[in-house]
Design a protein around this nucleic acid. Structure first.
Lengths: 241, 241
DNA sequence: TAAAAATGTCTATTGATATAGACAACTAGA
DNA sequence: TCTAGTTGTCTATATCAATAGACATTTTTA
């Protein structure tokens, strides 16, 4: 196992990310604990103290818990899988991967469509759109932070409907749109920014997956454009065709 | 604009990533240069020397070039878009986004299918599979590093065919498979490791997008499983449904 | 009970990271 | 040609990151 030196990312941060990923992959499921510090130090080719810094960061995240004399126990391991398809539905997608699912409305406002938003929603630039900021949780852990735009003429009551139901699908249904399909999804990845840190409870330096998606009604008219951020250590996407 | 302190990622690295991303988004297209160092320092709330470290890293990557007295000029900006669909084809997907396209065979070997590989290809564990390591370039820049597995019985000559044609689609055709479809694609993101650094010419600390994909013939029988790594600063995916 | 194995804590040292300030060198425009 | 704006270079200082070693404390095992 190799870590990179002097590249602007501290060794303890790289090692913490690798161990977190190993835990998520189930590499340590056999004994439910991480290998001893000296073993990890040898594996990564670093000093034991550097490994300790990495484990301290993971303990801070609540992923491991060190017990003197025994070892460093795994407290939590999870990775959610999001199917992306023509019929992508967030709440259904999580399915039984989490017991408790929540959708919170953080903010809502009517604004004029920018060039970007207008293009995505196929409406004139400057026409009224509803902007909604939402946060989704699975088992109390934030799993996505989304900004969504809807044509205001057709979905003026979107914010209230979402707040009541906690689900986009249910809110659409309440406004008379019983079915819709995912037209396009763009996926990219960036480093977490300060906002992600707060909203997604991300560990600093972590990676965020970003999707830009357009949903359309069955006539192919765009009904929603959304930019959603997911913590990459917790989430992956599956595109089924 | 906010940068995070004491999170294991050096400020100059965060700032370099942000500026690279701004360049890719076209934020500085107006005058073809990055804002002055003192302006950037004020924007990010850091010392000018820290911004200089970030710009030096970008200059090392060949993205900007500083000229004393004039400013820091943008040398190169690019981002490739990969469509992912039922008919995903790598070489076609790039289309005219690059003038020059290459596919290199780095290594090939016959091996026994592991549990993971066997499951993906729907073959018995331990049955012979062809493993191929390939590197793809667009305009001389590495854009993906893939490990692919094929059932050995059906596609024994895959490595030779790929080496000859530089394309999976063409190699399949040469072996009698004229059409195939993408069954499933998983997308995740991790930090670049040392291998990525070398193979994808990635800047240290950068992000790598990872896809795990299965292609099937028209009867739905898996013909290829591949794990592909893309530099996230250069590549994004579009899922069209 | 003793030994082995594991984490916890302390000191010390070196190099990387970040800030601060001063001034030199170069470019472009008035 | 002068000046404002910009990058280049230098010194100095403080903190973070990483290594190294020693020893304490706790748990498990022989």
């Amino acid at each position: 196992m190799i870590v990179q030196r002097q590249n602007g990312v501290a060794l303890w941060r790289q090692i913490a990310d690798r161990i977190r990923s190993s835990i998520a992959s189930g590499d340590y499921d056999r004994d439910g604990r991480v290998p001893p510090e000296l073993t990890l130090a040898a594996q990564f080719g670093v000093n034991r103290h550097t490994v300790r810094s990495a484990l301290a960061a993971l303990a801070e995240e609540g992923i491991v818990r060190a017990v003197q004399g025994r070892g460093t126990m795994i407290e939590r391991k999870e990775r959610l899988n999001f199917p992306i398809s023509r019929r992508t539905r967030f709440t259904q997608g999580i399915g039984d991967q989490a017991r408790e699912k929540e959708g919170l409305l953080l903010a809502a406002a009517e604004e004029e469509a920018s060039v970007d938003i207008a293009g995505r929603l196929a409406v004139p630039v400057g026409s009224p759109v509803i902007r909604m900021e939402t946060l989704r949780r699975a088992d109390r852990r934030p799993v996505s932070r989304a900004a969504s735009w809807f044509p205001a003429g057709r979905f003026g009551g979107m914010a209230e409907a979402y707040e009541r139901t906690g689900s986009i699908t249910a809110a659409f249904a309440a406004l008379g749109l019983t079915d819709y399909v995912r037209a396009v999804t763009e996926v990219s990845a960036i480093h977490a920014d300060a906002q992600d840190l707060a909203d997604l409870r991300q560990s600093p330096g972590a990676i965020v997956l970003v999707t830009r998606a357009v949903n359309c009604d069955l006539e192919g008219v765009p009904v929603q454009y959304s930019v959603t951020r997911f913590p990459a250590d917790l989430v992956q996407f599956t595109i089924e065709n």
